[in-house]
């Protein structure tokens, strides 16, 4: 039996961050994952300062320097991670690529969250026909995989705009397409939480006090659905980055002149048979470590915020 009085005041969301932070410090793996993520964010933010070469400099691309192996093999300390087929310094390109990948990933997920929260709140709070219709849409959208939908739409856009124009718009289109294809995940989670929270006494109490439904949704219910959103948010950024990389790999994403991690890997793949493995392998490892850290963080958050989950 729950004491009713406690239910009348809704739990304070402020303490949640302290709770999460203290938990992260206690768990070595989560700590490591967090450090890696922060590190990636930092180098992405500071790429222009950290990178040894300026990518916008025309002299950056020098075919004379093409396909130089990493410094520990070639002994050439000019290029720490070697160069790619166009003679670009791999380290600089990767730094900028990470910046692009992270930007696209985070922006796309922000779109997903916004859409998901709005649709989920409306569906969960209003219920009835609207709920039915929105959730049916979510079902259909989910049953096509987001990757499939993204491939189709990018292919259409590419034919629509023509290659040159498309490459200029690639980043915005990628963000929009990845952002618009996975809202159902958030919407469903929010809806489920709203339905659960709606039963709680504090929502009734707020309604009895004459607070408008919009205010109840945003000020009272939303803060209490943040835990599951946070979990999905973390994992979804990883998914969005993978999606972007895959689309770029297929040639539907970022162009070679402005490469993200995915386009770097795609480009490097062609040179693998010629023995220049590093052009492909080093960006791949960069990508894998980022995704792994995000997934570990997501897993840990899920376990930590949901004590009912298995402990072993």
């Amino acid at each position: 039996m729950k004491p009713i009085k406690k239910d009348l005041i809704h739990p304070i969301p402020g303490s949640r961050w302290n709770h999460i932070l203290s938990g992260v410090v206690g768990d070595k793996l989560a700590m490591l994952a967090l450090i890696i993520f922060v590190f990636y964010c930092l180098i992405a933010l500071l790429a222009p300062l950290v990178a040894p070469y300026d990518v916008s400099d025309p002299a950056f691309m020098d075919l004379m320097n093409s396909e130089i192996p990493p410094s520990w093999i070639s002994g050439n300390s000019q290029f720490l991670l070697g160069t790619d087929a166009q003679g670009r310094d791999l380290l600089s390109v990767i730094l900028y690529g990470t910046r692009l990948s992270l930007t696209i990933g985070i922006c796309a997920v922000l779109i997903q969250v916004t859409l998901g929260i709005c649709i989920g709140l409306v569906a969960g709070y209003l219920g009835g026909r609207i709920d039915n219709f929105l959730m049916r849409c979510a079902d259909i959208q989910l049953s096509f995989s987001n990757m499939m939908v993204a491939i189709v739409f990018l292919a259409i856009f590419q034919s629509l705009f023509g290659m040159a124009r498309y490459q200029q718009l690639a980043m915005i289109i990628l963000i929009l397409v990845i952002g618009l294809t996975e809202w159902p995940l958030f919407a469903r989670t929010i809806r489920a939480s709203v339905l659960a929270e709606k039963q709680q006494e504090y929502v009734d109490a707020a309604r009895v006090m004459g607070i408008s439904s919009k205010r109840i949704m945003f000020r009272h219910i939303l803060p209490n659905t943040l835990s599951p959103i946070l979990v999905i948010f973390t994992v979804q950024i990883a998914n969005a980055i993978v999606a972007e990389a895959a689309l770029s790999f297929l040639g539907l994403g970022m162009p070679a002149t402005e490469p993200s991690l995915g386009s770097l890997i795609s480009e490097g793949f062609a040179y693998m048979f010629a023995g220049s493995w590093w052009i492909c392998v080093i960006p791949s490892i960069t990508l894998i470590i980022l995704i792994l850290a995000m997934n570990l963080l997501g897993d840990w958050l899920r376990d930590h915020l949901n004590p009912r989950a298995y402990k072993d």
Binding site: A245, I265, F269, I288, L292, M294
Partner: peptide, 22 residues
């Protein structure tokens, strides 16, 4: 499987090509 979940399919494929084919 945790690591596998984080390795995108095209990288898996590239690795396969690299190891088993090249």
């Amino acid at each position: 499987s945790s690591i596998g979940l984080s390795v995108p399919i095209f990288i898996v494929a590239i690795l396969m090509v690299y190891i088993f084919s090249i």
